[in-house]
Structure formats: structure tokens, C-alpha cells
């Protein structure tokens, strides 16, 4: 190989480091959305592939374009889609609040633990995340069943006389969401809380501020970036969640991710599924931009 200058190598490394990930993500992440948008404007047909082409040359020099807005019209007019969308947002909101209520004290307790205990405690939070998500959701079926372990336990204790119906209700979905997404809330909160300057709290204490008040006036506002980051990491994916509502939820209350799945796999309506994906994306753009903005600020603040 012929010798190269360091600056050549630098240029090459720049090209590879920036170019290859860009190329991959552009081709396999960005381009697909353009195609989803295209197919959301097509009509379903019984053929391979099961949607109509948007344009075709009918004769020399005449390009015929057919855009079908019917899918979006259907989504707007049929109440089931709006109800599913609102329910998804509601479940995501409740799930996020639940994760925050449980996750914040946990993250706080870990961040204020003696230093040598922090990493093991954190590992214990991450460990379940490494085992199968599907299996962890499945575990709750056996727990929440009418004749499941929780009901048997409560019956034996005499707390209840008839089994509670929890499985296949909205409550089960909340439990599943909090259970599955808790680590996503705790990790950014922990990272944020350990970065806080402890001298601020000492200053507050020296000035006669009680611990609880110091928490609400100093710690809580300063940990806002962690709260928002964790909340977005939970909220955004939960809006489109499929597995949890499908296995734990009631068949009656629909979520948008499950509806997309049904339109695609059961009804084989690819254009309608695509239109739903576009609607879901449009809804998620706002929280996503918020998250991205915050992350950017956070980094700018650090450098």
C-alpha cells in the first residue's frame, strides 16, 4: 500500500465515519417514510403488491397521477380511529406519569446512595431490560389472571372474596407500560441527578431552608431536563405500543399501534395502515422535536 499523509487519513476517516452511518440511515430509515407517505395515498387492490401505483404512463407523453385521500378521510370520519388515537395518547400519558411517580424517587434514592452502591443498584434497574420484553409482558398474564397468582394471594389473605378482574382491562395496560418502560425513565433521571451540584443544597441548608423545601426549590427544578428526557423516552414509544395492549388490554379499547397491526395483517389494507402510520408520525413529531431540542441544549451546556 502506498504511504499516505495523516491529513489524507483524516479526510478518509471523516468520510467513512460520517458517510457510512448517514448512507445506511438515509436508505433504511428516512427513505422508507417517503414510501409510507406514497402508499398512504394509494388504494388497496388484490394483487402483488396489494396497492395501486400512484402514477402511470397511459400513452405517449401523458402521465396519469391518482392520489387517493380516502384513507385520511376515513380516519377523520370514522370515530374508531380518533378514539384509538386519543386512547393511545391517554395510556402513554398515564404510563409516563406512573413511571415518573415510581421512577423519580428510585432514581433519587440511587443517586444519593453511597457511591460504591450506585453502580450495582443501577445494574439491577438495567438487568430486566436485557431479558425479553415479550416474556416480561407475558409474565403479567399469569399474575393478573382471574385465577392468577395475585388473585389467589389476595383471596388467601382474605382481602377480597371474589377474584378481581384486572387482566384485559386498562389497568393491566398501565401496569404493563410502567413495568416495561421504568428503566427508560430512571436512567436519564439518574444521569441528571448525579450531575447536580451538591453545594447548592448545602447553601440552601446553610440559609435555613428545610430539606423538603430545598428539594422542591432546588433539586426538582434542576432535574427538569432529566424529567422531560425520561418522559419522552417513555411517552413516544408507548403511543405506538402494540404488544402490551394486545396481550394485557381489553379487546374493546383500541390503541393506534394495534389498529395498524390489524389493518395490515388481518385486513391486508396496506394503504390504510400506511395512512395510520403517517397520522401517528404527525402526532409524535411535537414531543420528538421537544426531546431533540432539550438534548441539544444539554450538550451545548456541557461543552
Amino acid at each position: 500500500m502506498k504511504p499516505r499523509h495523516a491529513s489524507d487519513e483524516h479526510r478518509l476517516s471523516r468520510l467513512v465515519n460520517i458517510g457510512l452511518p448517514y448512507l445506511w440511515l438515509g436508505l433504511f430509515f428516512l427513505l422508507p417514510f417517503v414510501i409510507v407517505l406514497r402508499i398512504s395515498l394509494a388504494e388497496p387492490q388484490l394483487a402483488q403488491p396489494p396497492y395501486t401505483a400512484l402514477w402511470e404512463w397511459v400513452e405517449q407523453g401523458i402521465l396519469q397521477i391518482r392520489l387517493n385521500l380516502g384513507n385520511f378521510q376515513l380516519i377523520r370520519e370514522d370515530d374508531i380511529y380518533l378514539a384509538a388515537l386519543l386512547n393511545s395518547l391517554w395510556v402513554a400519558l398515564m404510563g409516563t406519569l406512573g413511571c415518573l411517580l415510581l421512577g423519580y424517587p428510585m432514581a433519587y434514592a440511587i443517586a444519593t446512595a453511597p457511591e460504591r452502591r450506585r453502580i450495582p443498584l443501577l445494574m439491577l434497574i438495567i438487568l430486566p431490560f436485557w431479558t425479553s420484553f415479550l416474556i416480561r409482558v407475558y409474565a403479567w398474564i399469569g399474575l393478573l389472571n382471574a385465577n392468577g397468582l395475585l388473585n389467589n394471594f389476595l383471596l388467601q389473605l382474605g382481602v377480597i372474596d371474589t377474584p378481581l378482574k384486572i387482566l384485559h382491562t386498562q389497568t393491566a395496560v398501565y401496569i404493563g407500560v410502567i413495568y416495561s418502560y421504568l428503566p427508560f425513565m430512571i436512567l436519564p433521571l439518574y444521569a441528571n441527578l448525579t450531575r447536580l451540584d451538591p453545594t447548592l443544597l448545602e447553601a440552601a441548608a446553610d440559609l435555613g431552608c428545610r430539606p423538603f423545601r430545598a428539594f422542591t426549590r432546588v433539586t426538582l427544578p434542576l432535574s427538569m431536563p432529566g424529567i422531560v428526557a425520561g418522559s419522552m423516552l417513555v411517552f413516544i414509544p408507548v403511543v405506538g405500543e402494540f404488544v402490551i395492549p394486545d396481550l394485557l388490554g381489553s379487546p374493546g379499547s383500541l390503541m393506534i399501534g394495534k389498529l395498524m397491526w390489524t389493518e395490515f395483517f388481518a385486513n391486508k389494507d396496506w394503504p390504510l395502515a400506511s395512512a395510520l402510520a403517517i397520522v401517528l408520525l404527525a402526532v409524535l413529531v411535537v414531543p420528538f422535536v421537544l426531546m431533540q431540542r432539550l438534548q441539544q441544549n444539554d450538550e451545548d451546556g456541557r461543552t
Binding site: 409510507v36 413516544i236 405506538g240 399501534g257 400506511s274 402510520a277 401517528l280 426531546m291
Partner: peptide
């Protein structure tokens, strides 16, 4: 953060 259903559908298309 992208929901799996969107990634799955868009990749397939």
C-alpha cells in the same frame, strides 16, 4: 423512540 409498528411497516414497504 420510534414505535416499532412504524419502523416495521416502513421497512417492509
Amino acid at each position: 423512540v420510534m414505535p416499532d409498528v412504524i419502523i416495521g411497516l416502513s421497512m417492509l414497504l
